[in-house]
Write a protein that binds this DNA or RNA. Structure first.
Lengths: 343, 343
DNA sequence: CTGTTAGCGCTTTCAG
DNA sequence: CTGAAAGCGCTAACAG
C-alpha cells in the first residue's frame, strides 16, 4: 500500500520463491515463459519497483558518479555538467554534484563523502588551491574508483584527462592580435600553478616570440577572474609610460573589465586597443561590441569526459588505460579585435 | 588493502563483535570508554570508512536528494542548484541532478529513476510540457517522498513551493515603463499554461489597466525564450500600423533580440522605445546598453527550497505541512528603459 | 526450471 | 557494558 512492494511480497502472492521472482524480473537464466509472464504481470499490478539501493549494496555498484567542480553557476561548468549528464543518463548513471568553491578542505571532504557513498567514478576539475593535495586523489585510485580530470587537471599517473589545448588557443588568439597590427600585447593571467592558466600564458608568450616581437614580462599580470579586477589592472596598464596596444586575457570577465576601463579613458576599441578573452562566455557574443574569445566546447568536453569514464568502466577488469583527450579550441574573432572587415 | 575495511575486520582484530564496533563508532549507547577509544584508534589505523550504501539500505534513507530542472546550462537554474547544494551539504545530503530538456517522457523517467534510487526528496522545476502529468507527482507523494517545486510549479495538494512573485515583478516592470511615459507597451510572453508566464502576463495586464491605458491583446505575443525569436517578433511589432513604444519581455533573451531588431531599424533605445526583460541574466548587466530586468534571486530561491525540504524532513512523523514561500522580485532599472537620469 | 542458502555492510533489538 | 541474531532487498551459487 505504501509503495513498498518487494520481491518477497510478489513471491508470497504467487507461492514461489523470491529468487524465482528475481530471475523472472531480470530475464536472466532459464525460466519458464509461464512463470515469467505471471511474475511480470503481478509485479506490474502490485506496482513493484526495484530498490536500487539493495542492488547497489549487493553488487558494490551504486550507479552514481560524482562530479566535483569549483562552482556551479558558471556557464562553463554548468555546460560541462550538462554534457556529462546527457551522456551518462542513457547508461543508467546518476550524477551527484559537489562544489569546492576553491576551498581545499571542501574538496577533500567532497571526495571522501563521494567515496563513502560508493560512487562508481569521480569526474572533476580541480580547485585553485588543490595543486599539492595528491593524498585524496591517491585515495580514489587506491579504491579502484575511476578518476577523470576535465579542464583543470592535476598530473597524476594513471588518471585520464579531458582538456582543450589551452596553449594552442592562447597562441592563436595572440597571433590574431598580432595580425591586426598590435605590437605590444599585455596578458591578464591567472594562478599559473593551474595548468590551464600556465598553458595560456605559454601560448601567448610563444606567439609573441615566434613573431619577433619583444616579450615583456612587466605587462603580464596575474589576477583573478572578476570584472572589477580586469578594470583595476587595465587602469595600471594604461597609465604606463609605454602602454599596450592590445590585451589578451585568460578570462572573459577580466577582458570585459579591460574593455570598460579602456572606454572610460576615452580610447577606441579596436582602433586604439584590441581585446581578446578566453572561454566564450555567453555575454561576449551578446555585447554590442562583441568580444573576441576562445571557445572551449564545454558541452563536448562534458560528453567526452563521460565517454572516457564509460570506456574505463567497460575495461575495468582488463588493463587500466590512461587516456589524454585534448580538444581543439576555437578562436572566435569578434568586434573587439577586428580592425579590418576581412577578418 | 584494497580499501575495503569493514566493521567485521576491525572486530576480528580486536576480538570483539561487529555490533560493539558499530556502537563505538557511533558514540551510541553505553560503551566503555576503553573499548571506544580502542575501536576508534584501530578504525583510523585500518583506514576504515563507513559504507553509506549499507547504512542507506538498512535505514531506508539514502541521503541523496534529486533535483530536476529543464536544463542545467542556464544561469538561473545553475544558480538555484548552487543554492540547494550549499544549503544541503552541511546536512550530509548529496544532490543528484536530472535534466528534462522539456521532454515529458524524460521527466517521468527521471522521477521514476530517482524514486528507485530511494532519494530522500525531490526538488523540481516542472518542464514546459508536464502540466497535465500529475501521475508521476502523485507517485512521489504516495511513497512519502517529500516533493517541493521551485519556480515552475504545478498545483498539487500537499506540495510545498518556493517561487517569486512573478505577478508583482511584471507589474513593477510595466509600471516603470509607464512612468517613463510609454503608452503602448507590447509583451513578449511564453507558454501561459506555465504559471510563471501566466503571472507575468497578468501582472503586465493589471499594470496597464491600473494606469488607465488601453490594453491591446494584439501586442501580446507568445513565443519561446530565444534571441532570434525576440528579433522575429519585434520585427512584426515594429511593422504594425500602430507600433509599440515599449516592450516588456518575459525573458531576457527575447528582450535582447528585441533590442537588436530595434537598433537594426535605426530606432533609439530608450528614447524611441523602452525595453525591459525578466530574469536578470548576467549579460543584461554587462551590455553597454544595459537591460532593465527583474531579478529572481535564484541563489536565495535554491537555499530556501532546501530549507523547506529540511524542515519537512524534520517534521516527517508529525503533520505534513504545505508551505508556500513567495520571494520578492527586484526590479533593476538600467539603461534600456531610463529616459531620465533620476531613475 | 525452481527452491535453498548465504551474503553485501550496517544497525538494532534482545539477552546476558 | 557486550555478544548473538535478525533483517534492510536483492542476487547468485549450488542443489535438486
Amino acid at each position: 500500500m505504501s509503495g513498498k512492494t518487494t520481491i518477497y511480497d510478489i513471491a508470497k502472492k504467487l507461492n514461489i520463491t523470491a529468487a524465482t521472482v528475481s530471475r523472472a524480473l531480470n530475464n536472466n537464466s532459464k525460466i519458464s515463459e509461464a512463470t515469467r509472464k505471471l511474475v511480470m504481470e503481478t509485479a506490474a499490478q502490485m506496482n513493484y519497483k526495484q530498490n536500487k539501493l539493495a542492488l547497489a549494496l549487493k553488487s558494490g555498484k551504486s550507479n552514481n558518479i560524482g562530479v566535483i567542480v569549483p562552482r556551479l553557476d558558471s556557464n562553463f561548468f554548468a555546460t560541462v555538467i550538462r554534457g556529462i549528464e546527457e551522456e551518462l543518463y542513457p547508461h543508467g548513471f546518476h550524477v551527484i554534484i559537489c562544489q569546492t568553491r576553491d576551498d581545499k578542505n571542501l574538496e577533500i571532504e567532497n571526495i571522501d563523502a563521494l567515496l563513502n557513498a560508493q560512487v562508481d567514478g569521480i569526474l572533476m576539475s580541480i580547485s585553485n588551491v588543490s595543486i599539492e593535495q595528491n593524498e585524496s586523489f591517491k585515495r580514489i585510485l587506491k579504491k579502484n574508483v575511476p578518476l577523470i580530470f576535465f579542464d583543470r587537471k592535476a598530473n597524476i599517473n594513471g588518471v585520464s584527462t579531458v582538456t582543450i589545448n589551452d596553449f594552442h588557443g592562447a597562441y592563436e588568439a595572440t597571433k590574431h592580435l598580432i595580425n591586426q597590427g598590435c605590437k605590444r600585447i599585455a596578458h591578464l593571467s591567472n594562478n599559473r600553478l593551474i595548468e590551464i592558466f600556465r598553458d595560456r600564458y605559454l601560448g601567448y608568450k610563444q606567439a609573441i616570440l615566434d613573431s619577433g616581437l619583444e616579450f615583456d614580462e612587466s605587462i603580464v599580470i596575474e589576477t583573478i577572474s572578476k570584472v572589477e579586477e580586469g578594470r583595476k589592472i587595465t587602469k595600471i596598464l594604461l597609465n604606463m609610460d609605454n602602454p599596450p596596444d592590445a590585451i589578451f586575457s585568460s578570462s572573459d570577465f577580466t577582458a570585459l573589465g579591460a574593455i570598460q576601463e579602456i572606454k572610460a579613458q576615452g580610447l577606441k576599441i579596436p582602433q586604439d586597443i584590441c581585446v581578446a578573452g578566453f572561454a566564450n562566455e555567453p555575454f561576449t557574443k551578446f555585447m554590442e561590441l562583441s568580444i573576441t574569445s576562445v571557445d572551449q566546447s564545454p558541452l563536448e568536453m562534458g560528453k567526452m569526459t563521460a565517454k572516457v569514464f564509460l570506456e574505463q568502466v567497460r575495461n575495468n577488469d582488463t588493463i587500466k588505460i590512461e587516456k589524454k583527450v585534448i580538444l581543439k579550441p576555437k578562436l572566435l574573432i569578434r568586434k573587439s579585435s577586428s580592425k579590418n572587415s576581412n577578418e
